[in-house]
Every structure is written in C-alpha cells, then in structure tokens.
Design a protein around this nucleic acid. Structure first.
Lengths: 330, 330
DNA sequence: TTGAAAGCGCTAACAA
DNA sequence: TTGTTAGCGCTTTCAA
C-alpha cells in the first residue's frame, strides 16, 4: 500500500506538504501542489481513513440512523442523503435500528460512540429519552428529519398543515363523513400532528370529529387495509378516508376494491408521502418530497460541520397532488 | 474521551492486557478480564475505531455497494445484511452507485480504497471491467449477491430455473401465447438468464418463442406498465404475461385494468421477487426471499473473514407462490 | 511556504 | 499470563 511518505519522496517535498496539499488546509505553493498531485496520480495513492482520522479527529463519514430500511419512505430519504454526501466525498455509516433492545443498545452504546463518524442524521425514529441523551452527548452535529425529538434540531414538514391540506381538500369537495387512518399519541409525534391537523380542519368546517371514524394503523399497507375494511363496513360508512401515509392509503384502496366499492364514486381516499407508486394507484396525496428531504438533511450536517453555508429554514415543503381517488360524494 | 490507558489504570493492569481482554485475542486470566470489564463499564469506555484500525488493520466495518437504494428489492436485501452485521458488532459503510461516472469513479477509486472496510458486499450491480478489477484488487473478501460478475464469488438464485418455473406454471395452465417483459443481454446477466429460462420452458413445451411477444423494460413499474400496454393492445393479444420482476408485473396489472382486461380472466400475470405488496395485488410470483439473501451474504463475508464457519452452497432458494393473477386461458 | 518531529489511541511483537 | 515498547499512517504544531 502506498503511503504519504512515498508520495512525498516522489514529489520531492515533505509529508507535511503532501498532507496540506491534499487536505486543502494551510498554504501550499501552486508548484508544490502540482507536484504532489502528479505523484498521487502516478502512484494511485489514497489516504488511509483510519490514519487520517486518528491524527485529525475527522472521519469524512456521516452516520445515518434508520428504522425499517425496507420501507419506501426511509429508503428514499436515504437515497437523497447518499447522493449529496457521496458527491462531497463523504461516506455513510448505516445504522438500522430494530425493536430488539440488545441491538439498539449496541448501536447507541457502542457503534455510535466508536468515533467513526463526524455527524449523524436520524430519520423519524422514536427515541427513548436515554437514547436521545446519548445522541446529544456524542458531541457531534445531529440532524433529525421528520421527528422532532426534543433537543435534536429537526428538519420537518409541518405535519399539521399536511393533514389539514388533505382534509380540507375532502371538505372542499363536499365530504362531511371523513374518516382518518393513522395513530394518535402512541405512534409518536408525526402521526399525532397529522391527526391534529385532520381534526382542526374538521372543526374549522364546523364538523365534529367522531371517534368511530378514527382507525388506528401502524403505517403498513396491511394495517391500512385492515383499518379501512373496518371503516368501510360500517353501516354509516364514511364517504372519504384520509390515511396518514400512502402505503396505508394503498391498503385502503385494496380494501375498497374487495368490498366492491368504487373509488372515488363510493369513497374518496387521500394519502401522504408522494410514494413512487401513488401515481399508478391514482391516489390523491400530499407529497412531501422524501428524496429532497434527504438531500436537505445531508446539506444540513455538512453545514453544521462548517463545510457549506447553512441552508434556509428548517421547514420542508409539501404539495397536495390531485389524482383520481378523490371526488365529490355521491 | 476516556482511552485505553485510563481503563488500564483503573483496572490495575497494562494497556496490552486491556486490549487483549477486549478483543479476545491472546490469553488473559479471568481475574484480569473481570477487572478490565469492570473498569470499562465504570468509565463507559468505547474503543476508538480509527486507532484500533490503524494499529490492527481491522475495521469492523463492511462495505455494501448498492444501485438504486430506493427500490424495494435492494432495500430489502440491505435490511437483511444490516440485521446480521449489526448483531455481530459490525458497522456498514453504504455506497450508493449512480449512473454519474464521476460519482462512480469517486466510489471505486477513492471511497473503497480508503481502508475503511474489511470486506465488501455488492448487490446485483453491473460493473464495468475496470470497476470489477478494482474491487478484486482491494485485497479483501468480496461477496456478490445476484449478479455473477466474473471473478467475484456470488450468491445467486438460479435465474434460469426461476423463469422456467414461472413460465412452466403458465404452460401447465394451458397457455401457449405467453409474453415476456424483461430485458435481454443488454440489461445484464440476471435478466438475460431469466429470458433464457423463459424460452427454454417454451421450447420444452414445443412452443416457439415469438419475438413480438418479448417486450423490453428496465425493471421499473413504469416500464412494465408501458411494455404491458404494448403487448396487450396487440390484436393477437397474449393470454399470459411473465414479467421478470414484481414491480414490472404491478405495472402490467395496472395496464390490464386500464384496458379493461380482467386478470386472470383475459390475461394471466406472473412476476419474480416476492415483493411485499405482491400479496395485495394477488400476484402469482416466484419469491426469492431477498431479506434472507442479505442475511446469507452477510454470513458469507463474516465467514470469509474467518469469523464464522462457512455456510453451505452459494445457491439461493426460490419458490413459486400461487395467487389469483394466474388461471387457465379463457 | 516549507520541513522536522511529536503525537493521535491502539495493537502486537517480544521479553519476562 | 503479563508488561514494555515500537510502530500503524497520518496531521499539526513549531521553527525556519
């Protein structure tokens, strides 16, 4: 393996100059820089990450904490993060959190504390208080996307406004019996806010939210399906369904089909996310541009590390996308 | 940050003994081991990854090369990998390959060569020859899942057999006009083999494959949709469709619905993958257990690193799952 | 702008 | 079984 000493020799300079030329820190003459670059290219030199990290304290590596890697939303945000970081020469350390306490402990107590990363991005994870404290104690920039775990700076969409937009759309179409599939406080901040936005929109339209029109689901397509079946089988069937995620909305669409209900003839459905398949389902949804959220998060850590100018507000955009799953009630 | 010296002092032993006690290499008395562990717990010591790597040459980090992070299949395999590695105290370095030559060059020429990882897993990526050579030159264990890039040991399902199973199922139902959505040589090894398996099954049934019944698609739902539209609009419409991936099959199902064709009444559809949503679509598919593929790949690198006993054959299982999208032709 | 040299925190001979 | 110590390959003072 060719090291910095060999490069220095080939370039006719000291190792210190090679280091400075390659890192961009400190002054190096153009002549020296050129010689170093030539030697690097000729020898195919690549700096050892561990040696550099040990000496400098910088790792050029960002940790990403993800729950449920195989869910479209997280995978898409991750893809946005990877794009930006890769373009800046940063590597990604991926930490997939499961429900297994031992596995989580390993991540929080060991992996994250090995000094392997310069910063951390957490994707909508509900953290326990000790977990959150552990993260803050890492002493490195942390950016949360989605969930505002108290104390961790978060990039969030205004989930109340998202739900409000979806619900208002249904109200504007003339619906009064609007059910909601999601979760309350138990599911964490995000679902809770979406439910609030839903209820707020109803209130503003002079409609009292009815407990029977709320169905709990854990954001999977299966749970959305089950919840929708229950709601749509009621004798006083709602004319519209607002699901707190597109995958749950997909489940609802399948449920409607099973019950031989026409969408949007018999029931309108709205989701949240902008899932890649929502177009095919004709699903009206509130797109929250997850790929862009990942990109924003990556830029935010880079900014916190002083590598980029800080970006603007932490508020993320969203947009109601109208498709064929919503229409006025029959 | 508490270091090994502080632990040694607290435990009343030398740093060498601490190192041995924690790494499990070399002989350490039970008494010493206990004292070290107590000191570690008391001080909350976690070893510095860079210092340890620099001195030992081991990183406790495995690289994973992924194309298209936001596709269900890759995300699911990745999830399986993460599960196993995390359980073994290994971290993951995630490298997302894009089509951008500069980005790819950065990954192959720099990121992978920084001595940041002990081993590498590549997920069905079509690598250029120099890229593949670069990987082999890394001098570390490499495991490919899916694509048998020449020279890299691969865990693969028998893609010919997979396609053969899907096609034979349609033939057994009585279909003769069976179209295929996938790609030929151009798309890489995997699609090519699936097409071979498809044609082989036809031949064995005495059916001559017809060029008009092959439609190219790039494994996205959009492309599957477009390909199916084209096939299903033919006057001599095929009675069955074999799509080389579930997502393309989903596209085909949407296409059938748009054309007011009944599935399976007017046309049968089979996919490949065992996608999480295939059950909801009622899609008959050949499940290839992607999560388990990831787990197998992780075990394979660990075995190559001498941390586990080598597992069995590199052949991965698959299974035809019958659902409601296939039936005898009308 | 450059170079010499002292670490960064750990591991692994080697000697005891 | 343990301790001493020389690196591992860089970065960063400090002095020139």
């Amino acid at each position: 393996m060719v090291g910095i000493a060999e490069v220095a020799r080939a370039a006719g300079v000291s190792t210190a100059t090679v280091s400075r030329a390659l890192s961009g820190r400190g002054q190096v003459s153009d002549a020296a820089r050129a010689k170093v670059q030539a030697a690097v290219d000729a020898l195919g030199y690549v700096m050892s990450a561990s040696a550099s990290s040990l000496a400098s304290g910088r790792t050029r590596n960002i940790g990403v904490l993800v729950p449920l890697l195989d869910k479209w939303f997280y995978a898409t945000v991750l893809s946005g993060i990877a794009d930006v970081l890769s373009r800046h020469g940063y590597d990604i350390a991926l930490y997939n959190l499961t429900d297994d306490p031992a596995q989580r402990a390993g991540v929080f107590d060991t992996s994250l504390r090995r000094s392997r990363i310069d910063g951390l991005i957490t994707l909508t994870v509900e953290l326990s208080d000790p977990e959150r404290d552990g993260i803050l104690a890492l002493g490195m920039p942390v950016v949360a996307v989605g969930a505002p775990n108290h104390g961790i700076p978060a990039l969030t969409v205004d989930d109340r406004a998202v739900a409000h937009a979806a619900t208002s759309h249904l109200i504007a179409l003339g619906h009064r019996e609007i059910a909601h599939i999601g979760s309350g406080r138990a599911g964490g901040e995000v679902p809770a806010r979406r439910r609030e936005g839903y209820e707020q929109a109803l209130h503003q339209a002079g409609i009292a939210p009815r407990a029977e029109l709320f169905a709990h689901a854990d954001f999977t397509i299966e749970a959305g399906h089950a919840a929708a079946l229950e709601l749509l089988r009621r004798t006083d069937r709602p004319t519209a369904l607002f699901a707190a995620s597109d995958e749950m909305a997909f489940g609802a669409l399948f449920a409607a089909r099973e019950l031989a209900l026409d969408v949007p003839g018999d029931v309108s459905v709205v989701g949240v996310d902008g899932h890649g398949m929502s177009g095919f389902f004709g699903l009206t949804t509130v797109d929250q541009f997850p790929q862009a959220q990942g990109e924003r998060a990556a830029h935010a850590v880079l900014a916190a590390l002083g590598l980029e100018a800080p970006a603007g507000a932490p508020e993320l955009p969203f947009e109601l996308v109208l498709r064929t799953s919503t229409a006025p009630p029959a």
